[in-house]
Amino acid sequence: MENITQAIQGVPLNHYILLSAIIFAIGAMGVLIRRNAIVIFMSVELMLNAVNLLLTAFSAYRGDAAGQVFVFFIMALAAAEVAVGLAIIVMVYRNTNSIDINVLNKLKW
């Protein structure tokens, strides 16, 4: 384990921020360009994970354990969110026979 953690020594913090920003942007792009509700949901998970990685990197950088505890809470929240969200998607599919989000435009007008 000692030489594994040696590998990370010297990676600039900026590169972690860049990596997280890129993955967050990819998630946002996925929300914008897809129409399948489940894929949109997965893009939201991608964005959550980008933030988790950045929080962990900052926590290791600052030597403060609170950041990693926050990541743990975000994971608990994501589990709850996925359960409710997928239940909603199943209900939408049962009512409209599709998970295309363009069907769900009743509130638009």
Binding site: M1, I4, I8, N52, T56, A60, Q68, V71, F72
Partner: peptide
């Protein structure tokens, strides 16, 4: 996470 030595996470 393993590289950051955040083993629990």
């Amino acid at each position: 996470y393993i590289l950051l030595n955040a083993q629990f996470l």
